[in-house]
């Protein structure tokens, strides 16, 4: 009986996995391939609706993308935004995980509360931030002008350097729980014996952290950097909902969206997305290369 089941193993395995693979292929893989094809075509909505995949092939989109200063600006903004939110959210998450490491009263409920920014709907939280930061009726500006003595309300989300900073702060707020969650799990897994030995040897708490705890967390940190960089590089919702891409916050995804909906330039949008994916791929390859040694050891 057992050998009979083994004999059908290949067939059964493929049968059970096929539905999932089909859905993922239809909704994700085929669209990605299609995007690459479209990026070589001078395609607008009408052309795609009429001819589908079969339009004349051209390199014009790529030439246009690479020649547009706005593209390079968007790339720069995306990199600044991704690095800042990645470093910020992992840094805050690490501090939070260390603070929550030892038991204290209400630890479990407070830990659950800390994850709220990450699980709450992005549309609701961005809206609250928008209202709170609004120059006319927002509580932050009211507090600033009436209590802190600011001369003017600050246009947090609609003037040039502050808008990007505000979006970055929002994203650190939204995503530090993610790092907190994973670093917390990693801390729970550490054996305390080495640390106790270090304390016996006279290590100060900071030395203990720097020489004993942090090195053991590095694999998790490296993985989180990878996750967060990829997610931030492709981020759309947060930026679009907070600023609409105005005031120097046009990251790549928002630019792609504007090319699609504003000028319905499918070919150009696809080429922008493809170039961004190549940049991300190269960055990932370099990162994996650099961290390869660390992962081996």
């Amino acid at each position: 009986m057992g050998s009979k089941l083994r004999g059908f193993e290949n067939r059964d395995g493929i049968t059970l996995v096929t539905p999932v693979v089909l859905v993922v292929a239809a909704i994700i893989v085929i669209p990605i391939v299609w995007t690459v094809v479209l990026s070589f075509q001078d395609a607008r909505y009408v052309d795609v609706a009429r001819n589908g995949l079969f339009n004349e092939l051209t390199l014009d989109n790529y030439a246009d993308v690479l020649a547009a200063p706005a593209f390079w600006q968007a790339l720069l903004t995306t990199v600044e935004y991704s690095v800042a939110t990645t470093v910020g959210s992992i840094g805050v998450g690490l501090v939070a995980a260390l603070a929550f490491r030892d038991r204290f009263r209400f630890r479990a409920p407070l830990r659950a509360v800390m994850l709220l920014p990450y699980v709450a709907p992005v549309v609701a939280t961005t809206f609250v931030w928008q209202v709170a930061l609004n120059p006319q009726y927002g509580v932050v500006n009211a507090f600033g002008t009436q209590v802190l003595g600011w001369e003017h309300p600050v246009n947090f989300l609609s003037s040039a350097p502050t808008a990007l900073l505000t979006v970055i702060v929002y994203d650190i707020w939204r995503y530090f729980p993610f790092a907190f969650l994973f670093l917390g799990a990693a801390l729970t897994g550490l054996s305390r014996e080495i640390e106790e030995a270090a304390v016996v040897d006279g290590a100060t708490p900071l030395q203990k952290f720097w020489f004993v705890v942090l090195p053991q967390l590095l694999p998790t940190v490296a993985l989180l950097v990878l996750f967060r960089m990829v997610m931030a590089f492709n981020e759309f919702d947060d930026v679009y909902l907070l600023t609409g891409g105005a005031a120097g916050t046009q990251v790549a995804s928002v630019r792609v969206f504007e090319q699609l909906t504003g000028s319905s330039d499918i070919g150009g949008a696809s080429a922008t997305a493809a170039v961004m994916a190549v940049f991300l791929g190269v960055a990932l390859a370099i990162y994996l290369r650099l961290t390869a040694k660390q992962r081996e050891s």
């Binding site: 990605i32 990829v230 590089f233 492709n234 759309f236 995804s253 792609v256 699609l260 949008a269 997305a273």
Partner: peptide, 15 residues
């Protein structure tokens, strides 16, 4: 996860 949802969304929508 390597690709932004936005580039997936458009062909899916057209399809």
């Amino acid at each position: 996860y390597l690709f932004p949802t936005i580039i997936i969304a458009v062909p899916v929508f057209v399809g």
